[in-house]
Amino acid sequence: MRLAILDRGHSFGTKALFAFIRLATRQPTPEMIKLIGYRPGFFGAHMKKVTHEAMRGSSAWSVGDRELMAAWVSRVNACEYCIKAHSAVAARAYGDAPKVAAALSDLEAAPISEPLRATLRMLGKLTREQTVTADDMRSVLAAGVTSQQIEDALAVGFAFNTINRLAETFAFSVPGPKAFEAGAKFLLAHGYR
């Protein structure tokens, strides 16, 4: 972490919670939890609500689809921490790790539905170029995606374009696969609240 306050500046109660998490998971406190737990009234508590609604709110997209979108946006942003974190959740949600790996390595050839592929394509362009056009949206609609599904995907895009920037700027250290497995289990069971 590039800011010491994000490593050691938490309140006593939050530090106690971190100790409990370390004990329960036998893994270091996730960097994301440290960020969200630092002065939560300023950012973390509000960001958790945005992210929970985007990732677990009612949607025609499955949890696995939305976790794959999160991993995909993170891949376009080259955010290693978030790619690994959300690949692990998507793999567990789908029960299909190879599908997630295939989508992230070659979107056009991956064994995913055309509506999901078109949506990921649009999210990728938005993330890379900061904007998309009405024609880009027409292409997604033509693939059979509803307007509401596009809005739902944009909510995921908003959350992870924010989180990726913070993870990269604050230099989250990237733990081993066991830590991400523990995180994936928790996020599937409890969401982002």
Partner: peptide, 18 residues
Amino acid sequence: GQSTRQYDSARAALDAAT
């Protein structure tokens, strides 16, 4: 702020498309 600009741009594009 940047994520907001991306999001608003995409929402506007969706509105235009529909």
